[in-house]
Design a protein around this nucleic acid. Structure first.
Length: 416
RNA sequence: GUGGACGUAGCUCAGCUGGUAGAGCACCCGGUUGUGGUCCGGGAUGUCGCGGGUUCGAGCCCCGUCGUUCACCCCA
């Protein structure tokens, strides 16, 4: 009698063969450009002190106010499953004094993140991100490079149906000035309760409303871009200039909104055309006050987070994920127990020489084993039976052509 | 959190106005002794998501629940 089945928790994304191969491929492709630009791995815990996100991400954000997995551990501490990566990285940078050496500190990470949202296409409660952070310098060239690294990852996968949107949120002074004007404007609007509530929390949010009537109403709203001070404006112009020079296409979106409080200055988002409502495949920006807010020095930084799940979805939507199957070099079919012992030994030796070798287990018939070998896509197959054991010579069969040749077991390696 | 759709074998789905389940693919075995991909034959598989209710009787109707999915919201 079987017990009741246990299912995965609601809304998690998980990857099993064959698709796990595509996931691995996408993840590595997104990491590679960061490595080539000199970013180094930082491996962090998936849970942190809840306070880190309250202060780092911001109490007023949806992420912190209603989407965090927070619980008390056995010592009565408030723990939260990380909903994003930047805060944790900053915490670790401060804790380990990484910012005491040469700047910028350049780090990359990859892993799972958690947000208790209603699941939807491309939106999961546990999801995967690849991210980088460049901390300590305010050079606009770094902004451009960070963006270029994300873009390089998408391009190396062959993605083309996406666009890069950029804007500048300016510094604190610019934002404060704009916020006053924007709030005044919003007061002239006739809003429903929920929307008014959102406006109170963060008036910029209204730029993101998807309803046509709201888009129209916001048409005349004052734009933050027009309130940037000279320094912010120059910085942003430089970023655009560098992007132009690298021939990275972008569109200026002065109505872009980001949901995390720490963003300042250069802010960007990659949007894929084929994905539906959850179309952001990556995003990031500069954060001026974050490190200080977490008890560190007053250093600026910039980084991004790329959604592996969504990039995979996008790649599948564009039909550019190659489903080349797992291929082993050699498939050994042992007939009988002595042969099985021999097979294990041969496999072990060839593997230590770098070959991918599989063995037919379970004493199934030769025909079945051949079928199994065929399915794995093995390049070569060898049958180990009485005569082979006696002569120490096997028929090395090349699966593609069906041809085979006699090879000494001892010298198998040089024929693979 | 709010609203809509959906939930039948591993996968994709069929199942007429309620009468206790089927196809294709996949899987396993075989087609004379030890060689795959085609073909032929045979076979296993489901408490019809779960729990209640209506009914003589429910995969089909009703309620609840869990899950998936789409949109809002939010974001990767």
């Amino acid at each position: 009698m079987s017990e009741q089945k246990i299912q995965a928790p609601k809304g998690v994304s998980e990857y099993v063969p064959e698709r796990s191969k595509s996931f691995e491929f996408v993840r590595n492709a997104l990491i590679e450009p960061a490595k080539r630009a000199g970013y180094q791995l930082i491996e962090l815990p998936v849970f942190e002190d809840t306070e880190l996100f309250r202060r780092g991400v911001g109490e007023s954000t949806d992420v912190v106010s209603k989407e965090m997995y927070t619980f008390e551990d056995r010592g009565g501490r408030s723990i939260t499953l990380r909903p994003e990566g930047t805060a944790g990285v900053m915490r670790a940078v401060i804790e380990h004094g990484l910012d005491r050496g040469q700047l910028p500190v350049k780090l990359w990470y990859a892993g799972q993140f958690f947000r208790a949202e209603r699941p939807q296409a491309g939106r999961f409660r546990q999801f995967y991100q690849v991210g980088i952070e460049a901390i300590g310098l305010d050079d606009p060239a770094i902004d451009a490079e960070v963006i270029a690294i994300a873009d390089a990852g998408f391009k190396s996968l062959g993605l083309s149906k996406y666009r890069l949107e950029i804007t500048s949120l300016g510094d604190l002074a610019s934002r404060a000035a704009h916020r006053v004007e924007l709030s005044k404007f919003i007061e002239t609007l006739d809003l429903d309760e929920a929307t008014a509530e959102r406006a109170k929390l963060n008036p910029l949010r209204l730029f993101d409303d998807k309803r046509e009537e709201m888009k129209e109403a916001m048409l005349g709203a004052p734009l933050l871009m027009d309130y940037l001070n000279e320094e912010s404006l120059q910085h942003f112009k430089s970023v655009m200039k560098y992007l132009d020079q690298m021939e990275i296409a972008y569109v200026l979106n002065s109505r872009m909104v980001r949901g995390l409080d720490y963003y300042t200055g250069t802010t960007f988002e990659f949007v894929h055309e084929l994905l539906g409502a959850q179309s952001g495949i990556g995003g990031g920006g500069r954060y001026d006050g974050l490190m200080q807010a977490l008890g560190g020095q007053a250093l600026s930084g910039i980084g991004f987070g790329l959604g592996i799940d969504r990039v995979l979805l996008a790649a599948e939507a564009e039909g550019i994920i190659s489903q080349e199957s797992f291929v082993s070099d050699l498939y050994i079919i042992p007939l009988g127990d002595t042969a099985k012992e021999m097979a294990l030994k041969i496999a072990k030796d060839l593997r230590s020489a770098g070959k991918t070798v599989e063995i037919a287990f379970g004493d199934r018939g030769l025909k079945g084993s051949m079928k199994a070998a065929d399915k794995t896509g093995a390049s070569y197959v060898v049958v180990l039976g009485e005569s082979e054991l006696e002569s120490s010579v096997v028929e090395l069969k090349r699966m593609k052509t069906g041809e085979s040749s006699s090879v000494k077991i001892a010298s198998l390696l040089q024929y693979l």
